[in-house]
Design a protein around this nucleic acid. Structure first.
Length: 465
RNA sequence: GGCUGAGUGGCAGAGUGGUUAUGCAGCGGCCUGCAAAGCCGUCUACCUCGGUUCGACUCCGGGCUCAGCCUCCA
């Protein structure tokens, strides 16, 4: 009767039935941000996808152990020998210590996380807090013969693994033909750093002792080490942005195969990109849109969450202010409808309309088809069900949507000047002086507020733009 | 240059070999002092050229365009 959850697995390139590897607990690891700068709304789309995944798993009665890492060291500006650490670069740019930079952008990221109503992970883990684990993993990988030394670090020898790159269907011959990778001392273009030495004469702010010399861990080993520490050598789902498929996740799998003999996760899932101005929004490109920029324009964070729900996580989405407007309007309408239905009954779960919940569940079970799930929500809004049932149903579904649909439309702070104009207009209307009332409405609108008249009086609301 | 994937109405975005996506916007009506909101109704689509088929937006091939990866990136 109940639709079984099916999810797309990038590793097998197909949608298949999901079941936890052990018991009813789902172990979920998500690659988190590199905290050298603010997150942009494209980054946030991926975390929203992961939050919806987590909420869906919980909706399907699984317990979820959700782990998110914070990359605060080792993420280089390029994989070549000349690559610089992004955090250290950010520190120099802003005249602060690397540690301050990491702490500041971590806080900013987590603030965005909460504003988008994402559920708190069980574990936030920082790479710099897990140096010992990473060193231990590198030593074991080396002991097993999958690593070699160069003048600037310890590298993973991808030639030792026949399965290397399977996740991305990487073809070694094709990569050679591309020939755009600086190989340097690496034996193969796909080999990657496990440990990098601090360069002679360079005083790094983040560096540690290791059996191979003073330096810092490579980017890929941190995720493997932390994921295994908190979730085990083989867990249920590993997520990230689709850009991680060809390099980062292939390398995590390689490390895990060498170190543990597992592919690390049963399902590999990837969020797709947000396109902006017909081009990808790039964090490293420097020009990007933050959640704050949306707030400054008068949008609430959950309008962006709604917008993301209107597209499937596995297709690129085009961002525009026009589409955000549409999402904001739809969310407002949804909340207004919910408010008009009054209170739900005593038990949300018991009063919810079973057929609607089943429809919604079926769409989510089909690899998280949020666009169709939203269509079910709108069918509910237009249905002939009793208001208390509609309300209970919508609140039930909001466990996945996370749109706070039960929330009353926010009370806007009304500037005194605007409030005074509104009072004058009310007086003019009472006197049936329509010309004066219309003139006052124009003045109010010039202050950025709209006036809605109703039999109970007039209300003000802020206009966007 | 190599490899992936995609091209749906004004915008965003699902889906399907023959049947309404959905939302926003627009248009018409009700309501309103006039509006707005709300409610009711409604128009607009499947890149292009061929092929397969009784029938293709849906399958196959060419072309064009876009995005991604191959280089740090959600």
């Amino acid at each position: 009767m109940t639709a079984a959850l099916r999810l797309y697995d990038t590793y097998q390139r197909k949608i298949r039935a999901f079941a936890p590897l052990a018991g009813d607990e789902v172990r979920l690891y998500a690659c988190g941000p590199t905290v050298y700068d603010y997150a942009h709304i494209g980054n946030l789309r991926t975390y929203l996808f992961e939050d919806v995944l987590r909420r869906t798993l919980e909706f399907f009665d699984y317990r979820v152990r959700h782990v998110v890492n914070i990359t605060d060291v080792g993420h280089l500006t390029s994989d070549a020998d000349s690559g610089e650490d992004k955090i250290e670069q950010g520190a120099r740019r802003e005249g602060q210590s690397a540690w301050d930079i990491a702490a500041r952008y971590t806080r900013a990221f987590q603030a965005d996380w909460r504003r988008l109503n994402m559920r708190e992970p069980a574990v936030w883990c920082r790479a710099s807090d897990h140096i010992a684990e990473q060193i231990a993993d590198i030593a074991e990988i080396q002991r097993r013969g999958y690593a070699y030394l160069t003048s600037d670090g310890v590298y993973f020898d991808t030639a030792k693994l026949k399965t290397y790159g399977h996740l991305a269907r990487i073809d070694a011959a094709g990569l050679a033909a591309g020939a755009r990778v600086e190989v340097g001392e690496k034996r193969r273009a796909t080999d990657f750093a496990l440990w990098k030495f601090s360069r002679p004469g360079e005083q790094r702010q983040m560096e540690w002792d290791s059996p191979w010399g003073v330096g810092f861990p490579g980017w890929h080993i941190e995720c493997s080490a932390m994921a295994v520490k908190y979730l085990g050598a083989e867990f249920d789902i590993h997520c990230g942005g689709k850009d991680h498929i060809p390099v980062h996740h292939c390398n995590e799998i390689a490390q895990s195969e060498a170190r543990h003999g597992t592919t690390l996760a049963n399902f590999w899932m990837h969020g797709y990109f947000l396109q902006f101005d017909r081009a990808r929004m790039s964090k490293s490109g420097g020009d990007f849109l933050r959640l704050d920029a949306l707030l400054e324009r008068g949008y609430e964070p959950l309008a962006y969450r709604y917008l993301c729900l209107t597209a499937h996580y596995r297709s690129d989405m085009k961002f525009s202010w026009e589409s955000l407007d549409g999402a904001a309007a739809a969310l407002c309408r949804l909340r207004a409808a919910a408010q008009a239905w009054g209170e739900a009954g005593e038990s949300v779960a018991a009063d919810a309309d079973a057929a609607t919940v089943a429809d919604f569940r079926r769409e989510m079970a089909r690899d998280l088809n949020t666009p169709r799930a939203l269509a079910v929500v709108w069918a509910l809004v237009k249905s002939e069900l009793p208001p208390t049932v509609k309300k209970a149903t919508l609140l039930e579904l909001d466990a996945i949507l996370g749109l706070e649909v039960g929330r009353a439309p926010a009370e806007e702070a009304i500037p005194a000047g605007v409030a005074a104009l509104a009072e004058q207009r009310a007086a003019a209307r009472a006197a049936r002086d329509w010309a004066a009332a219309d003139r006052l409405r124009g003045e109010i609108e010039a202050h950025g507020f709209a006036v809605d008249d109703s039999p109970d009086g007039s209300t003000l609301r802020r206009q966007r733009g």
